[in-house]
């Protein structure tokens, strides 16, 4: 009896209504996201058989992932490309966010943001391919520079290499960096800036001591939202690098599908996710003093 009244109370409670409403979406995410991710973790400690996976516990896949120089160099390449892209994207984006937040008339802000986000919504594949066409050996940049006589031979340091990866990815992820910084800047109380200047600070010092610290929460969000997906990018190394300079996603694909070693592929995927999580947590920890009280 006591049980039933407790159940009855629960059924009419706010929590029950919330669970009931969220359950279809949550069930879908558990079945098609949480369960597959758990499966990857499980596979990563299994042994690889011929065309099958043998359910016998082993750490060999992780030992191979972390000790093999090939996987280590691919991992380091992915990390450095991702860090370079993040640095370039966020540094280039900050002044744009600052301009839109502080120097654009409020009624026109959403128009500017719309202009900034449009390129992001146009086919990612075609944009990456366009950069290959632009930066290639016989590409747009080289042919344009040669036809106006600036150079006699095509430039080679811009073709199909890591620098080209960074340009392509920095272009692809630009709006991701601008929007969080913009949102953080919009929350800054404008009277603080006036107070700073009334108390005799120069414009530059006000920026340095008021605006920058208060917008750091947005910068941290921008860094994470660029860094994490870039490290798993598949299309850019494939199209721009012609598959010769693989990043972690290309490695995972190769192991899972071409060499059919799903346990090793899973171990690399799990390791990559772990590294990304650890790097992100360290970054958030280093910036913890800027993040207090923003939530």
């Amino acid at each position: 009896m006591a049980q039933e009244t407790r159940w009855g109370r629960f059924r009419r409670s706010e929590a029950a209504s919330g669970y009931l409403l969220v359950s279809p979406t949550a069930a879908y995410a558990i079945l098609l996201l949480a369960a597959p991710l758990a499966m990857i973790i499980l596979y990563s400690v299994f042994r690889d058989g011929y065309l099958t996976v043998i359910p016998a516990f082993t750490f060999d896949n992780y030992v191979e992932t972390w000790s093999s120089p090939i996987y280590r160099s691919v991992m380091i390449r992915s990390l450095s490309v991702s860090m370079a892209v993040t640095l370039v994207t966020v540094l280039l984006a900050y002044p744009v966010a600052y301009f839109v937040s502080f120097h654009v008339d409020p009624s026109r802000k959403s128009l500017w943001l719309f202009l900034i986000t449009i390129p992001f919504w146009t086919s990612y594949l075609i944009r990456v391919f366009l950069w290959k066409v632009i930066l290639g050996y016989n590409g747009v940049v080289n042919s344009a520079l040669m036809s106006i006589g600036v150079i006699d031979e095509p430039l080679t340091w811009i073709n199909y290499n890591i620098q080209a990866f960074v340009v392509t990815l920095a272009h692809a992820y630009a709006p991701f960096a601008i929007l969080p910084i913009f949102v953080a800047m919009e929350k800054i109380d404008r009277s603080l800036l006036e107070a700073g200047q009334d108390l005799g600070e120069s414009r530059l010092m006000t920026f340095w001591r008021v605006t920058l610290p208060l917008s750091m929460a947005g910068v941290v969000a921008a860094v994470l939202i660029v860094f994490i997906p870039v490290i798993g990018d598949y299309v850019t190394p494939n199209l721009i690098g012609g598959g010769k300079i693989p990043m972690i996603a290309n490695m995972i694909e190769n192991l899972m599908l071409v060499r059919d070693n799903k346990p090793l592929g899973s171990a690399i995927a799990v390791s990559a996710m772990l590294i990304v999580t650890v790097v992100s947590l360290i970054f958030v920890f280093l910036n913890r003093r800027f993040l207090g009280g923003t939530k």
């Binding site: 098609l32 597959p36 499966m39 994470l224 997906p229 995972i252 694909e253 899972m256 995927a269 990559a272």
Partner: peptide, 11 residues
Amino acid sequence: VLPEMIVAMAL
């Protein structure tokens, strides 16, 4: 925030 490659491979 999850790389699409990981979502695709897990599925």
